[in-house]
Design a protein around this nucleic acid. Structure first.
Lengths: 334, 334
DNA sequence: TTGAAAGCGCTAACAC
DNA sequence: GTGTTAGCGCTTTCAA
């Protein structure tokens, strides 16, 4: 069923059908209704290829993320898809892992599908060596690139992020002000936002004349493995006689690892040791005791980001960076 | 950069360029190389719209799920995307919620994008009233429909599922054989797989002359809310004097609710009460004690499903149903 | 082995 | 308000 069939049945030209299709106001109500009726009757749907071929736009946005099964990224993808759809855009998802070569590869694939823009979900897309970001700049020459949770300055690149530095700084400071002195920081990422969080912790601790105790746990495929690893590492620290009365973690899963560690050694949380996680995910609530966690406003970020893409594509002026503050959600571990 | 530009630069016709593009063997090696060189030099990528317009196929699969932020569904989407990409297909994601009207709506949107097939993730797509499944049958007339975790028999519909009935039956029976007598079942879904699980529990309990104690918790937007609700419900049951020495749950989150309940009332797990969850998600490991959980072989299911779509699209014969057995992963709560 | 040309379904500029 | 027509970039007969 094509525009030609409809035009024939309705006794009008294909141009008129097209006008009705695109809501042009240069069609008389009577004609419009006639065409609409025929369309309905035939349950006609326009062919996206033909339209795309002419317009060179697909009303489709490419979403790239390393791993959409990660609780946090999954939530981001979900919000993005929802908001985009409300604005009339479809989303093509591409999970590209953490390797640069794959990122480039998958990005090209997406581009060949004629997406109107690309959203990079997660700070792992921005490398510290700037030459590794060439693929972003290249793509941005043709299509706007939106980045969630990373800071990258380049033409036609727009970032939405949470102030992870400030959030971690404040949370750590709050622990200190409530009398904690030996605060361990457990983290699993050195990405842009990863290092911001780390810096927030370090500055807070140093400013108050305390010392940094950090444990780095390398990224593993299963987050549950990282959780268990965190438990083990803290146990080791404990065995070595390292004192601690608080743990701040860069992810809820790691914070749960800390809670598990405390249970294992029979320490009380929060009386003996306080724990703060990050992301305010379901893990925070599932824990016993429930986890105090930093909420980095994912929904807000996604909403803003989508509003930004749409604006950019409509040719409007859009800020190159949008920054929200994090929120400390207090529960039982502090 | 189009096929015309390339043909001009290479001094051949567009037909030849097209042949090279599609790996036809009716091109002389010399010509092929010449064309390939020009393509490389210009870093040419074919236009997906133009190709799609001619061929009426997009090498793209539509993935529909109610909510991709659900831990389980997110994982499924992830696996599907990965496996599809390996086979050269892209995925358009569509999160359509639980309302029938939206399902239909979003499915039409996907179809207008000319996806080659549609994958329905989760048994909530199959309604018990068969008239509500008309949209599936209609779509299947034109495109193969693949369903993950539900059983629906119709032309051109292919299902991959886990034997949820058997898995729950076996798990419950194992509890009974180890001496448990008062087994509570907590669930939050009456979808196809939801009712299979329920039936598995009920049959196991009845077969052994024990009585059913079930608690239904209605679906809520935040899984953490369901978790807390489970805790409350069990507390109420407990206050009413209902005896229980085991809890089987239809989801890990609900099982964690049970664990939380036990902690709250000071009961020991598994000594006083055993707990079994479902999905073997990260929640199972994050819990303290760690949760025994039924693994419903998601990765395997997704792999099989993708292999099935590809085969159907290639015109090969494919079984209409593929069923895997669940796996009880024993941890500390039993 | 190669080329010419028709056609896929739609949009938009232009003419009436 | 409505119709005619020229593309958009590719695949695929059909001829050569």
């Amino acid at each position: 069923m094509t525009i030609y069939d409809i035009s024939k049945k309705a006794g009008v030209s294909i141009a008129t059908v097209s006008r009705v299709l695109n809501g042009s106001d240069k069609v008389s109500p009577a004609t419009r209704q006639k065409v609409l009726d025929v369309m309905n009757e035939c349950s006609y749907t326009p062919n996206a290829f033909a339209r795309g071929l002419g317009l060179n736009t697909s009303k489709t946005i490419g979403i790239m993320c390393a791993d959409s099964s990660d609780i946090y990224l999954a939530k981001a993808v979900y919000y993005l898809e929802q908001f985009l759809r409300k604005k009339g855009y479809d989303s093509i998802l591409s999970c590209c892992g953490y390797a640069l070569a794959d990122k480039i590869n998958y990005m090209n694939l997406l581009l060949s599908k004629k997406v109107d823009s690309i959203i990079l979900v997660g700070s792992n897309f921005v490398a510290s060596k700037d030459e590794d970001n060439t693929y972003i700049r290249e793509t941005a020459k043709k299509h706007p690139v939106m980045i969630l949770n990373a800071d990258y300055a380049a033409d036609n690149v727009y970032c939405c992020m949470c102030d992870d530095y400030q959030a971690t700084y404040s949370a750590t400071r709050e622990l200190i002000l409530s009398g904690r002195r030996d605060i361990v920081y457990v983290y699993n990422s050195t990405s842009f936002s990863g290092s911001k969080k780390l810096a927030g912790y370090m500055d807070a601790v140093k400013t108050h004349g305390l010392k940094c105790i950090t444990e780095y746990i390398s990224k593993q495929f299963e987050p549950s493995a990282e959780l268990l690893e965190a438990t083990e590492r803290l146990k080791m620290l404990h065995r070595q006689g390292v004192k601690m009365d608080a743990v701040v973690a860069s992810e809820d899963s790691l914070a749960l690892g800390a809670v598990k560690f405390l249970t294992r050694i029979g320490a009380k949380c929060p009386e003996d040791v306080a724990v703060i996680g990050y992301n305010n995910s379901i893990l925070a609530v599932s824990s016993e005791p429930e986890l105090t966690s930093i909420d980095n406003r994912l929904e807000l970020l996604c909403k803003q980001l989508v509003s930004n893409v749409v604006n950019v594509l409509d040719g409007n002026e859009v800020p190159s960076k949008t920054i929200f503050s994090g929120l400390l959600v207090k529960r039982q571990t502090t």
